[in-house]
């Protein structure tokens, strides 16, 4: 089993490297470079050339990539092309906000999804199952920004329960933060859970039709124990995978949600970076998002290896 896990981890590193190359290439292809943006109207061919030289933009792409990746590995994310501030400090201000929001969403959505998924699978076709299936299918079909807007309309504008814009000054208490973030968190929980509930239900039901579950029924094992002990243990691999995929989606989903709620998170920083052609910021944020994605998928992969008794206990 361990060689397999190590192999996956190795593949994970390779993947992150490939991602870094792609991100670098894409930012190279985009029209306009940091020097043009920074000089703006004041740009003359001479000043451009001087600034390009200063920023190292006149060197071949391969050298630029080597510099960038070298700096990245030593923890130096570079300097914002637009403002001149270090990217590390910009990210430092924002990353806590994003991590806080996604962490709350994760902590709420995973237990909720597994619980609802199991309840639905307990009596397929029953009242709970039909209610859960109906609402999850409906919610999966609705895009996240629409859910966000409807929530703003109903809960913030009409009912006035929570603020429509999630602006943080940085000094709020934990509970105050939660109430400010209620809408983006609710939106993300809804979007992410709907899929996880469906997959938990499908995964457990799939196992429920297997011969060993029929055997458990014929041994007189109570239904609750069949689901929790016999079925869930075998469905855990696929369920963990869906959870990881959804958390990974969450990382990209925050881009839309942070923008809608004007929440000062990492995603907002990246979107702003794209608007101002601030390539170093886009590169750094892109690397963070993609690495998170790869790490989550890697964890799911390892979890399904570890949860397989054939791999855990070879012959």
């Amino acid at each position: 089993m361990w060689p397999m896990v190590l192999r996956r981890i190795g593949i994970g590193f390779v993947l992150i490297w490939v991602v870094s190359v792609l991100i670098f290439l894409v930012t190279q292809v985009l029209p306009g470079d940091a020097a043009e943006i920074r000089l703006g109207q004041a740009a003359t061919p001479e000043t451009l050339a001087a600034l390009r030289k200063e920023l190292g933009l006149d060197q071949p792409a391969v050298i630029q990539y080597a510099h960038w990746i070298g700096d990245l590995l030593t923890g130096d994310l570079g300097i914002s092309a637009a403002g001149g501030a270090t990217i590390a400090s910009l990210i430092e201000n924002r990353i806590g906000n994003t991590v806080f929001m996604t962490a709350v969403v994760t902590v709420v959505s995973i237990p909720l999804s597994i619980l609802l998924g199991l309840l639905a699978a307990m009596y397929p076709g029953g009242l709970i199952d039909r209610a859960v299936t109906f609402s999850t299918l409906g919610l999966i079909a609705v895009p996240d920004f629409l859910i966000a807007i409807v929530l703003i309309l109903v809960l913030a504008v009409q009912a006035g329960l929570v603020p429509a814009v999630s602006y943080l000054s940085g000094s709020e208490s934990f509970w105050k933060k939660l109430s400010i973030l209620a809408l983006p968190i609710a939106t993300l929980v809804i979007v992410v859970s709907a899929q996880m509930i469906r997959m938990t239900r499908a995964g457990v039901l799939n196992v429920m039709s297997s011969p060993y579950v029929e055997m458990a029924i014929l041994k007189g094992v109570p239904r609750r124990r069949i689901i929790l002990r016999h079925a869930l243990l075998n469905a855990i691999g696929p369920i963990v995978n869906v959870i990881a995929l959804n958390l990974a989606y969450l990382v990209s989903g925050v881009v839309v949600i942070e923008t809608i709620f004007a929440y000062p998170g990492l995603a907002k920083l990246m979107v702003d970076g794209v608007q101002t052609r601030d390539m170093p910021i886009v590169q750094a944020c892109g690397m963070i998002f993609c690495s998170t994605y790869v790490v989550l998928i890697l964890i799911a992969d390892i979890a399904s290896i570890v949860s397989n008794p054939r791999l855990r206990h070879p012959k």
Binding site: P211, Y212, A216, K219
Partner: peptide, 16 residues
């Protein structure tokens, strides 16, 4: 009453 199925390989839960 106890039951013995045709395929033991499928009837034993692989995870337990």
């Amino acid at each position: 009453v106890a039951y013995l199925a045709q395929s033991a390989a499928a009837t034993f839960n692989p995870a337990l």
